[in-house]
Design a protein around this nucleic acid. Sequence first.
DNA 1: TCTCACACGC
DNA 2: GACGTACGTGTGAGAT
Length: 879
Amino acid sequence: MGKSNKLVLIDGNSIAYRAFFALPLLNNDKGVYTNAVYGFTQMLLKILEDEKPTHMLVAFDAGKTTFRHKTFGEYKGGRQKTPPELSEQFPFIRQLLDAFQIKRYELENYEADDIIGTLASHAADGDWDVKVFTGDKDLLQLVTPDVEVVLTRKGITEVEAYTVEQVNERYGITPDQIIDMKGLMGDPSDNIPGVPGVGEKTAIKLIKQFGSIEKVLDSIDGISGAKLKERLTENKDQALMSKELATITKEAPVEISLDETNYKGFENSLVFPLFKELGFNSLLERLGGDEEIPQETEKEELTYKNATSIEPDMLKSPSSLVVETLTEDYHKAKIHGFALSNESGTFYISSNLAEKSEDFKAWLEDENQKKKMFDAKRAHVALHGQGITLNGIEFDVQLASYLLNPSESLDDVADVAKQYGKLNVDANEAVYGKGAKKKLPEEDVLAEHLSRKAHTIFRLSDILAEKLKENEQSDLFYHLEMPLALVLAKMEEYGVKVKADTLQKMGTDLELQVTSLEKEIHDLAGVAFNINSPKQLGEILFEKLNLPAIKKTKTGYSTSVDVLEKLEGKHEIINKILIYRQLGKLKSTYIEGLLKVVKEDTGRIHTRFNQVLAQTGRLSSIDPNLQNIPIRLEAGRKIRHAFVASKPGWKILAADYSQIELRVLAHISQDENLIEAFKTEMDVHTKTAMDVFHVEEGEVTSEMRRHAKAVNFGIVYGISDYGLSQSLGITRKEAGEFIKSYLESFPGVQQYMKDSITDAKQNGYVSTLLHRRRYLPEINSRNFNLRSFAERTAMNTPIQGTAADIIKKAMVDMDQRLSEEKLEAKMLLTVHDELIFEVPEEELQKLEQIVCEVMEQAVELDVPLKVDVNWGDSWFEAK
DNA sequence: TCTCACACGC
DNA sequence: GACGTACGTGTGAGAT
């Protein structure tokens, strides 16, 4: 022992069987049997702990027949079928190994034994210690001075290791004589016949005396006992064949090298979710996976002070700060109280007291007084509404938590606290109620709640800061997301001017059209019904008018656009319904929806950007959503006429990144072909069409370009072949061909796709250029859908997320530049790959130049970033 | 108050 | 070959 490499080889099937029969039939909360998986896991953990292997592999039997069946058709005949309760557990065992990042291997026509034998012999160069774990004594034949075989005894974790000496001690023969012994005595479990009447005792005696089967058979005359002689003579061939069957081959065509079995340990982030799914709580606990699941159900006591006056001692730096607002919309929201926590203690400050204190106000505005907060943007905007400018925001627990894991829910301090095992703060909903019943509690309840929040934020901030550092996300946090929050706050507060009368006029026009369409549709149907009700519409189309129902939903007929489009031409009513839908959508969502949120006094709309929601790192926009204002169809696009500059003589300027995702893809994948396309400023869809359809530039038809564009779209959004087939109206097979052809044309992209998945499987997450993360625990799922989805996400998120990083960076830089250059122009909106400004006419040229510069230089990629700028009197004209 | 089907943008 | 297919937000209908 003590060589540089330690290889552990596990006989997967054998250990799984052992575990299955050794443990009672456990099942998890979903009714799936897990006893074999559980036992297997226990065994694995013990091996990892005891052996600390540098290399590891688990071998499985593949299929039913092996090369041994050619020698003897009845090999392993008469064996009991694997119980279904066990076979259903094998997928989990594979999933388990993947989660542990342990190599597993199976080989057509060979048994696990042969894989193990072959790899063990590959390791026989003196540099390796090998340990084989199995329940099958046959494997003892593999024992050498370098190879130990460990047999399971009772249960699963009780084992017995065999060295050469121990084999000799137990059987009195050498390990390579095991096969001779087997040849003579046979093995009923594998249906190996051997020599009738010869059992273990006789076999060992003979082998000890003569050395091997061959020598025994050569020396039959010298054997004592007439009966035994006769049997040996009669079953000569059978004995030799039995030996052959019992021999584990060391020359299986194993395609895996020892290097590839290298084992670097496992990631809790991959193993814990699976343990949770399987219900292995005790194992979770053993690995420390329950650290995040607090055991105590009682809140700890918190000492806080309900301040009656603002004392200098209370206002420390750093402090955590809670600024409580209850309405979802924080613009001009009422502030119901404050709390802060710092080295002096935790204090509740009523809004009354706060309002009267100049000291407190000064502290809030002091850049040098550092504050740790939860959702600082909300507080910042709300305070601004009271004439206070919040400065010195140092840490936002909500934002930090989002970067650490965007999939966790983080509406509330309690959500984040729970993730880090802290239970000392209640959810807002528990304190205030929800919906119509939401209300302010008694002041002492409020005081305690806010104090607890402040205290928790103070404690969490250090923990989260440390984690960000570990993840190399500090830069992303401090220099991108934190400053961005304030840029967004500014944009939200400033708002965007919308001409209500323009919307109103459009609304009146639409009203007329909708009403007349409604009448025509009712006439065609022969009955009045609610066209907006998919249920009623379905009944009319597919029952009354007997049109063919193409698709069904859970609740009835589908009446979605793609269904209706297929029915166009079959009945006059279809086209009218499509137009009715389109106009109805414009009217309700965009005209009426927007009018509802225009502030009467200012004529502006103040959306809110959610910075902690989208899994890819993008921003989202609510109340209203200004990121889905129509553009594709002319009728809808007209809505943009209503979005104008807020001052006379000012213009709207829109700057959008051209093909940012594909440029990012070119950079990340380093695909030479794609990089070249962007460096030479080719039209990327045309270029794609040329490569996919193998034609020259001049031969690209608009149909080819359309298809190429859809493929690019699919690559960027991570859609499947099915998704592509739907968007192009072609078969899935054809779509698959397109994708295949695309990947052949862009081999760097293909490699990137593969690497992304491998990356995700290995780390449990994927990352963007600026180290944004997305965890994909389902990447190793045995469920095809979940796994495929995770795989597409693994390929897509680095692209979309990096694009998000870039535009966010551009926004932060742009905000800085606008003030440095003392421009009056204002950044108003961001729509994923574009920035919208309003700008005095005289600044147009300068802004255009600065915007291009800032956006194109936001990060440096191996392909140029390109920005298109347009401006006009309204958002419609800025196209 | 919730879920569903649908539709808009990137 | 299965399986059911980017991310968001908002609308009206209909069941609870």
